[in-house]
Amino acid sequence: MTGQARVVIVDDHPIWREALERDLVAAGCAVVGAFADAEAAVRTAPALRPDVVLMDLQLPGMSGVQGVAALVGIDPAVRVLMFSSSGEDEDVLAAVKVGARGYLVKSASKRELLDAVQRTAAGEAIFSPGLAALVLGEYRRIGRDEPDPTALLTERETEILRKVSTGLTARQIAESLVVSHRTVQNHIQNTLRKLQLHNRVELTRWAIEQGLTD
């Protein structure tokens, strides 16, 4: 996306909420709403047209997971990034299953948080280290009729992944897509991180196994 990311914060701890707003504004984001509970966010946030809703998990009354479900019910395109002290598997999966676009634990650094907000606003699925593999594993475990192996990837990342699987170099991919070599490298690194893979060999093997070939 271009321009300021419009962010809504939902956190019942005033100190956390104020610190988040201060950091986001300092980073160039527009905080268009800040709420102490999910009910207020569900009533008001859709009209604020946020690019990202930064949602705590444990909230008074309606939980963060219930809040995500309600917001997605109003607008399926809403991008909710969970920001919670809990990294428990069941909490992460519960949030993702109702429509959260990503999940970041509160032990993340300020830089990681700000980066996650910007990338969520741009349409990426962002997870704390280790959680992306958990989510992908769950997609495989539940055995969907037509599982989406690229559920965590953007369209561009998937497009580049298909070309990687054919053996093209980053420079060749850049030429075919008319983008810079650095842009392709960045997308490949993002994909490796999301899929918890270590190098292009593993990435190519994974893509071929999933049928992601041109």
Rank of each mutant, 00 (worst) to 15 (best):
S165D: 02
T166R: 08
E175R: 10
E175F: 02
T169C: 13
E202A: 13
E175G: 08
L192Y: 05
E175L: 10
K163Q: 12
V178H: 10
L195K: 02
G167H: 02
Q196G: 12
R200W: 03
I173M: 10
V184T: 09
R200P: 04
I188N: 09
E202R: 00
I160V: 07
L197Q: 05
V179T: 07
L203V: 07
A207L: 11
I160P: 00
L195D: 02
S165V: 01
T166M: 07
L195A: 06
G167S: 09
L212Q: 05
S180T: 15
Q172I: 04
V164C: 10
V178W: 00
R171E: 15
H198Y: 07
V179R: 03
N190C: 11
T213P: 02
T213M: 14
T169V: 10
N190E: 11
I188A: 10
I160C: 01
S176D: 13
A174S: 14
N186T: 12
Q185R: 10
L192A: 06
A174K: 11
H198F: 07
I208Q: 14
H187C: 10
T213S: 15
N186C: 12
L195Q: 02
R193G: 06
E202C: 03
I188E: 13
S176W: 02
A174C: 10
R162H: 06
E202M: 02
G211K: 06
A170P: 08
G167I: 02
N199M: 07
N190L: 11
K194H: 07
A170K: 14
L203F: 03
L203K: 04
E209V: 07
H187L: 10
L192P: 01
A174I: 04
E175C: 03
S180W: 02
N190T: 07
L192V: 05
I160Q: 01
L177N: 11
G211A: 11
T169F: 11
A170S: 15
E202G: 07
Q185N: 14
